[in-house]
Design a protein around this nucleic acid. Structure first.
Length: 248
DNA sequence: GCGACAG
DNA sequence: ATCTTGTCGC
């Protein structure tokens, strides 16, 4: 993994890019809940300099998985809050490209609109893969909200500084710590909320993500030995919508 | 220098 | 995310 990257200049570039991209996305939030039957839930775990990605194809109506994919590659970039996509988008994209079966929506263990520039990893993933997307996390890097009552199964809005709804805090069961649901790409906040609440919650995170999380950790060492390294980096990934040049 | 920081 | 033992509380 490269060290000390991106530098201040690089970070500013990506922050500005995110701001520009984010402004163009609002008009595209037109996917309706009734057209969503399947989703691909993705999660990543890390060990020994490698990223293990797991994708779970989930049938929303039957509430069960119907295919599972795994993929591993070296880690090339550090984690930076607000620029999480630089680290995790590349492996996620390469896992998703191995999924030949079609699906309706992407679900990431990352934030979408509840982000300083309004465009977290969940948004980047949908944008890059041209799929509607949303995210569910245990914490958020940006947003204003009140906690739902501890002893109630309930949800509350998450607002940005202008009072716009950018997601929801939802307590899936009494006394369970809340999770944060945020729209990513082509979904309205309410649609992401409804979709999230239609999933089974046997733990803090909904079943498809919990499954993806568990499978991304299983037999990690073994996989690291078997697989080779694919020498690709963030630089090999170009957004169709990206304009402007990278610094340096 | 120290704490905070989506995963 | 990951490194890590026991422990307190909902």
């Amino acid at each position: 993994m490269r060290k000390r990257w991106p530098d201040e200049k690089g970070r500013r570039f990506y922050k500005d890019l995110q701001k520009r991209l984010s402004e163009k996305l609002h008009h595209l939030d037109n996917v309706e809940l009734r057209n969503i039957n399947t989703l691909l839930a993705i999660d990543v775990s890390y060990k020994e300099g490698h990223a293990m990605v797991c994708g779970v194809l989930w049938d929303v109506g039957k509430a069960c998985p119907f295919a599972i994919y795994r993929y591993i590659e070296p880690v090339y970039f550090p984690y930076i809050s607000g620029l999480f996509f630089i680290r995790e988008l590349p492996p996620i994209v390469r896992l998703a490209k191995k999924v030949a079966i079609d699906y309706d929506v992407l679900l990431l263990n990352a934030v979408g609109a509840a982000h300083p520039e309004g465009i977290g990893l969940a948004t980047h993933a949908g944008l890059y893969l041209e799929k509607p997307s949303f995210g569910i996390t245990e914490r958020i890097p940006y947003g204003f909200y009140e906690m739902p009552e501890k002893r109630e199964k309930a949800w509350r809005k998450i607002l940005d500084s202008n009072g716009n709804t950018i997601g929801y805090v939802i307590r899936s069961q009494k006394y369970v710590k809340p999770v944060f649901v945020t729209p990513g790409y082509r979904l309205k906040p309410e649609t992401a909320l409804s979709l999230a609440m239609s999933l089974p919650f046997n733990a803090r995170l909904p079943e498809p993500l919990r499954l993806a999380d568990r499978c991304s950790k299983k037999d990690f060492k073994k996989e690291v030995k078997i697989r080779g390294c694919e020498n690709e980096t963030i630089h090999s990934i170009k957004y169709p919508a990206m304009t402007g040049k990278q610094p340096g």
